[in-house]
Simulated scan of single mutants.
Amino acid sequence: MSIRTRLLAALALSAALSAPVAAQDAEPIKFSIALPLSGVLAFSGQVQQAGWQSAIAYINDEGGIAGHPIEAEYYDDEYKVDLGVAGFKRAASGGDLVFAGGDGTPFVRAITPENNDSYRILMSATGFASDLVDTESYKYHFLPGLTYSDMFSELFAYMKTEKEKPTVAIVYSATEFGRDPLENARAAAKEMGVEIVLEEETKWSGVDVTASAIKLRNAAADYVIFHGYAGNVWPEILKTARDYRVESTFLGTAYNSDPEMVRGVGDAADGYVGVVPYQLAMEDATGEYAMAIRDSLKKWDVKEYTGYANMGYVQTWLTALLLREVIGEALEAGEELSGENLIGRINALENWDSKGIAGDITFVGQRIPHGIVYRYNVAGNDFSLTERHN
């Protein structure tokens, strides 16, 4: 008997007895989560795992999902597709898996055809690839944020609030996700009246940034967008460009805009503008869920609490809370916990209150199509974020 059948039976028995199911005694709801816990992206995977663990503990302490505790298995895939796929298949083979989390778009693309045909399990991942809005191809995948293409549109809209006809240079990594939004960004720029005057591709790492800084000086764009990096290369380009007296406003997409990362660049990053999917300034955050995240960060003994959250940490919290919502709704309605039923409930969410994390959420194309634009104020030991509105 699968967990989907057993859960429904447990709920029926609970209702018949007119007594709530205790989370510690009820059938668990199983998650499988792939993370790069070692290798070049271990710094990101470890933060995400901490976010998952704290969010699931919060949910279970509040009674789980309709009385059922979440039971999550984490495995290290080193950000390697073959390891991620093998882990997914191992977890799915038991027949009782309700949700699978992936560490990025390459994993999702690799497993999606088989998941669509055979497993039909609800999935999500940390990547923001532009093609994830193709709901026919990614039938059971939801993105708890906006795509890379959406991010460019948000940054272009911000530019238009400052200049009627802004010019922009785009600096991106020679990776799949670095190149991901370029075609859509060109189309959006043309439509919105933004002129792209330079597209500069760099290596992912180990690159001499001098040539890029000189190109930015010669382009003299009003704005420079960094995209497709993970804490490497772009800070050196930014600092070198400042040394070369480049006066552009520098901007970045989500993975270049974690507060800790930008603060580490130093004074050269003062005035940097980043688009992120979630509220990251936690000290003044309001709303039950944002305050719960803040409390968990204060208790986390691995990193010192700074008043700001890592994007991956918040993403895992929001994903877990969304899962509690839709799985709980399905259980209460007596539905099987299939990918089809759960993605249907994700798509049906309308103005869902994220309680301080990301405003009221309505999914469009199985993703949240809006973000938050921050200005980063960096001066010596002083650091703050100012939310900007398009």
Results as ranks from 00 to 15, higher is better:
254 A>L: 04
254 A>C: 12
254 A>W: 03
255 Y>P: 11
257 S>V: 03
257 S>K: 01
259 P>F: 01
260 E>T: 11
261 M>V: 09
261 M>I: 08
262 V>A: 02
262 V>Q: 03
263 R>W: 05
264 G>D: 05
264 G>S: 10
264 G>A: 13
265 V>Y: 11
265 V>H: 00
265 V>A: 10
266 G>Y: 10
267 D>H: 08
267 D>G: 06
267 D>T: 12
268 A>D: 14
268 A>Q: 11
270 D>F: 08
270 D>K: 08
271 G>V: 09
271 G>H: 08
271 G>Y: 07
273 V>W: 00
274 G>L: 01
276 V>T: 15
276 V>S: 10
278 Y>Q: 06
280 L>F: 00
281 A>I: 07
281 A>K: 12
281 A>T: 04
281 A>C: 08
282 M>H: 06
282 M>A: 08
282 M>G: 04
283 E>S: 15
285 A>W: 03
286 T>Y: 07
286 T>E: 15
287 G>W: 06
287 G>E: 03
287 G>K: 08
288 E>G: 09
288 E>L: 13
291 M>W: 02
292 A>L: 06
292 A>I: 10
293 I>E: 00
295 D>F: 02
296 S>E: 06
297 L>Y: 01
297 L>R: 03
297 L>E: 09
298 K>E: 13
299 K>D: 13
300 W>T: 09
300 W>N: 15
301 D>E: 15
302 V>L: 13
302 V>T: 14
302 V>G: 01
302 V>K: 15
303 K>W: 05
303 K>H: 09
304 E>N: 09
307 G>M: 08
308 Y>I: 11
308 Y>F: 15
308 Y>S: 11
